[in-house]
């Protein structure tokens, strides 16, 4: 397992990455990002509409935070769309990082595993540092890792669902089978306890957006997730006790009063 939280050679002190979307207003976004302690934020590109105000304000706020930028290819349905959007992102954001999203189904926004592999291969060859948003499928993740994706971002549940970990077996297996990959659980987390759960499993980090942005108090929820991620990491490092199906008294039995030795 990785002792540091390392994304393609860059060490981050916080294992929490937040998105920048869906906040009630830009000021709350800024406060939530600051209070979470996160050092990287996701963002995207869309067609510029000069008649719509706010785009410049968003960009200024993000720049003022001086966070590492992780642009995504959200909404792309083809390899060409994803590759082009990644290239546009690299020029604007001046980073080789790309959160590669390639959607295969519009109902649950499930990543398309086949197109994801094709796009990842092209982008890696073009010098990108690819962070694919993928399902928890072990073989897909192995293939992505073998291609050269040092960081993988399997889902816990569909984007924005807040359902938490739907398949803990699959995530545990990923961690077990890909011990040297940097694994960040991305999408589907709704509560800090969900984040803590995956960090306890040994995941390297957590990426989320809706759970913080759609909370009644996004700033407080950002802090809660920060604590949960740190707690889960500490628990993983500490090593959990083994489970058993029967009770074991924690208070010593020896010396218990009121007990009489059986008469000889």
């Amino acid at each position: 397992m990785n002792p540091d939280f390392n994304i393609y050679g860059q060490t981050l002190n916080s294992r929490l990455i937040l998105g920048s979307a869906l906040y009630p207003n830009p000021a709350l976004m800024q406060q939530a990002l600051q209070q979470s302690g996160c050092e990287a934020v996701t963002l995207s590109l869309r067609r510029q509409a000069p008649e719509q105000q706010g785009g410049e304000q968003f960009w200024q706020l993000i720049r003022d935070l001086k966070l590492k930028l992780l642009p995504n290819t959200a909404g792309c349905h083809s390899v060409q769309q994803a590759v082009t959007l990644a290239q546009m992102s690299r020029e604007i954001f001046q980073t080789n990082w790309i959160k590669l999203e390639l959607i295969g189904d519009d109902y649950n926004l499930q990543p398309d595993p086949i197109l994801l592999l094709q796009a990842a291969e092209q982008l890696l060859a073009d010098g990108f540092e690819v962070l694919p948003y993928c399902t928890d499928d072990l073989v897909l993740c192995k293939r992505l890792y073998e291609l050269g994706c040092k960081v993988l971002m399997p889902w816990a549940a569909p984007i924005g669902s807040g359902l938490g970990v739907l398949n803990p077996y699959a995530l545990r297996t990923l961690r077990e089978r890909l011990p040297d990959a940097t694994l960040i659980v991305d999408a589907g987390l709704g509560l800090p306890s969900h984040a803590c759960q995956v960090m306890e499993m040994g995941f390297d980090g957590v990426l989320l957006n809706s759970a913080v942005a759609l909370a009644k108090d996004p700033v407080l929820m950002a802090q809660a997730f920060s604590h949960a991620v740190a707690a889960g990491r500490s628990a993983f490092l500490a090593g959990a006790m083994p489970k058993q199906d029967f009770a074991s008294p924690s208070t010593p039995v020896l010396g218990m009063p009121f007990w009489l030795q059986e008469a000889p």
Partner: peptide, 10 residues
């Protein structure tokens, strides 16, 4: 022709 700029994203 597509001309894009930064926006919020998750």
């Amino acid at each position: 022709l597509d001309i894009v700029s930064p926006i919020a994203g998750g």
